[in-house]
Amino acid sequence: MSPRLTEERKEERGQQILDAAKRVFARKGYGAATLKDIIEETGMSRGWIYLYYQTKEEIFEAVLDQMDMDYEQSLEHLKAETSTIWQMIETLFARQQQELEQAEGGLMSAFYEYFLVGWRYPDRREVLTRRYERGIERFAQILQTGVSRGEFVPAMPVQDISRLVASFQEGIVAHTHAVGATKANTALQLKSLLRYLGSLLQRPEEEAL
């Protein structure tokens, strides 16, 4: 077996572990899932898993990292497919609404369980802080692109707008997972947030109408 093939096989097994972990976390949540569950889901031996990860927490954080990379790629594709940044933002909100209305449990619930229950642990808090800041910066960059293109004349710094939107979104998502999309009226909340965001961005074409 060539070194190149060995490396490819290693990557395949690593992906199999993450795919299995996603299924386990989506099905059982973070707290109830065990490393044994993930090992059984992969169909691999415990020794193989330990070549990649030592703990359930390491696996979960690797899943989050992969989700982040996938999201970054989807943003790049969406930016290329949409004619304006505002259209891109509208599409992101529509996708989020669809995901929340279809979700019951799933990885997002495991995500909230991991951080909201474990915020007292310094390592988890560090991961959450890092992800939070990265998310704020990511959306601020999208908004800044709209400013650079002349689409937006923001009422405040785009970083502040990004933090506001993140806070509102987190509340909407948390309530949706707690009581369901119908009781939380998720569609109305996201629509209202989008309207509020538009007012903060003071879109010139809106003023011209």
Rank of each mutant, 00 (worst) to 15 (best):
K183C: 09
T91Y: 14
E40C: 00
D123T: 06
D68R: 15
Y121D: 13
L197D: 02
D65G: 10
Y30L: 06
K191T: 11
Q144N: 06
I49Q: 04
A110Y: 05
S162P: 02
K36A: 06
R27C: 04
V165K: 06
V165A: 07
A174K: 14
E170G: 15
L190H: 03
G198T: 05
E11W: 13
S192V: 10
M44W: 06
V153E: 15
S192H: 11
R149Y: 07
S2A: 05
A208Q: 09
A181P: 01
Q96V: 03
S192K: 12
L64S: 10
L100F: 06
E90Q: 14
V158S: 09
G146L: 00
L116E: 15
L188K: 14
A174M: 14
W119N: 09
R120G: 14
E8A: 08
E207I: 05
M1N: 11
G29F: 10
Y71F: 13
T82F: 07
Y53T: 00
K10W: 13
L116C: 08
T42Y: 08
Q16M: 13
I85E: 02
A166V: 03
G14M: 04
F60I: 00
V165G: 06
I161F: 12
A110D: 04
M88A: 15
L197G: 01
T34L: 02
V173G: 09
R163N: 06
V165I: 11
E76F: 09
L5Y: 12
K28T: 06
R9P: 04
R95T: 10
E61I: 11
G135C: 08
Q96F: 10
L107F: 08
A155N: 08
T55V: 01
L193F: 05
S45R: 14
L194C: 03
W48Q: 13
E90T: 05
L51D: 08
R124E: 03
E170N: 15
R9N: 13
Q87A: 15
K28S: 13
